[in-house]
Design a protein around this nucleic acid. Structure first.
Lengths: 148, 148
DNA sequence: AACACTAAAGTGCATATGCACCTATTAGCG
DNA sequence: CGCTAATAGGTGCATATGCACTTTAGTGTT
């Protein structure tokens, strides 16, 4: 086997590159839609998933969102600043629990159709079959990686 | 159809959330391996894909890497600072062309096995079938989204 | 040549990401 | 009770991301 060019196609063959590229592309679509209501897709996710939950500590919510705890700490900053969620003291003096405010709930209701529009744009671009394949593949892959 | 709870599972059902979560997870694996040689996966990608290319202008390279031009401008900063690549003047006084330095080429050779190790870790966690499915699905999906 | 238009790249701002490290508090154990 | 472990959370630093805007340089038209 010749081996002069062992540095083959990291961009085409690198799983990480592929998935990051896809994340950038898809994020751009969602962010473009959600900009109409002044949210990023990350912020939308944090708000929408908190809706209906009881006051949730930072660490627990980070786990739910599969996000680093310190990343969550920073990601909620603009949401706290705009009054869409609040940090209330937990049972523990260490703990601080996240809750949606009334404004936050209103925002979730307002942003929902916008999120749906983004979701539909992707769904229409991909078609039903590719959309299902993408969801299934990602879900399966993540389950396998989480198991490690 | 009842519609009292229209705000259904954005985290499970949101394509964007799924793909960003996957990107975080996979990035962590690659970054953990590549930290051994002092690179992030983004930096590895930028170095490895520049190897063998003639001096490439910023904008052109951003397009190759499917990355925003201004993001590339910033991502190359640590690579320029550590002397792994250089910006030389292009044919045009507006243009600045990227090239790997000798140190950069050496780094690519050195980091290659490390990258392979990360790739293999993911591949082994997923198995051959899921790995192929992930690659194919992402490639297909991106082609469909780029077409829009 | 003068002026408008386009192209290449950088900056300001804001967010997203995560490791290493720090602080405060609680739980547990002798 | 007092010391130690573990737990919850925040900060510093560095990178990653991209939109809006600016700067500089080439292009083209009259």
């Amino acid at each position: 086997m010749r081996n002069d060019k062992p540095l083959s196609m990291p961009e085409g063959g690198c799983t990480c590159f592929q998935i990051r590229r896809a994340a950038r592309k898809v994020t751009a679509i969602y962010d473009r839609h959600l900009a109409d209501v002044g949210l990023t897709v990350t912020q939308w996710g944090l708000l929408a998933n908190l809706a209906g939950k009881p006051p949730t500590p930072i660490g627990a919510y980070a786990e739910v969102m599969a996000m680093d705890r310190t990343t969550l700490t920073r990601n909620i900053k603009p949401l706290l600043a705009t009054g869409l969620m609040t940090l209330s003291p937990g049972p523990d003096r260490r703990t601080r629990a996240l809750t949606l405010t009334a404004e936050g709930k209103a925002m979730v209701r307002r942003a929902y159709p916008t999120w749906r529009a983004a979701e539909m744009e992707v769904r229409e671009a991909l078609g039903t079959k590719a959309t299902t394949a993408l969801h299934d593949t990602l879900r399966t892959s993540m389950a396998l990686l989480d198991a490690v």
